[in-house]
């Protein structure tokens, strides 16, 4: 809710600032023209930030995302040697490679965590729905 309010304040604020800088530019200061281009960019960036804030699954970003990544990366390497050696089912090299790739590439892990969340719950929770 606070995020929506912030955006509602931010975008018109940028528009006002842009208009103010147009006035500065018209009064002869060329820097005003530069900043009158800049402020709409800040408005757009604020909108992008808000969009992410509202739509991201909180389990895949921030501290919770990191904790989840660590939990997802740790078990396979710990379990492999002892538990799967006895019945001839050798550690699946694909799974091992995936765990390593995930630990190396947070984006991949994030995506896989997202897929896992999707398979558990068809509607992933977002910051908006809390």
């Amino acid at each position: 809710m606070l995020a929506h309010l912030a955006l509602v304040v931010w975008v018109p604020g940028c528009a006002v600032a842009c208009w103010w800088q147009v006035g500065v530019g018209l009064s002869g200061d060329s820097l005003g023209w530069i900043y009158s281009v800049m402020w709409p960019c800040f408005a757009v960036f604020g909108t992008i930030f808000w969009w992410h804030f509202v739509h991201d699954d909180p389990d895949t970003v921030g501290r919770r995302g990191l904790r989840r990544l660590q939990e997802a990366a740790a078990p396979p390497t710990v379990e492999q040697p002892g538990s799967q050696g006895h019945d001839g089912a050798a550690p699946d090299p694909g799974e091992l490679a995936l765990a390593r790739a995930e630990a190396e590439d947070p984006e991949l892990a994030e995506y896989n965590a997202y897929l896992a969340a999707l398979s558990r719950d068809p509607r992933p929770s977002t910051w908006r729905s809390r």
Binding site: M38, F49, V61, G62, L69, P106
Partner: peptide
């Protein structure tokens, strides 16, 4: 002004990859 815009994009990308709150 213009470099700050680039900084914003690059910094936002990095903070997401590092799971910054």
């Amino acid at each position: 002004g213009f470099l700050y815009l680039v900084y914003l994009v690059v910094a936002f990308d990095l903070t997401r990859k590092l799971y910054i709150p």
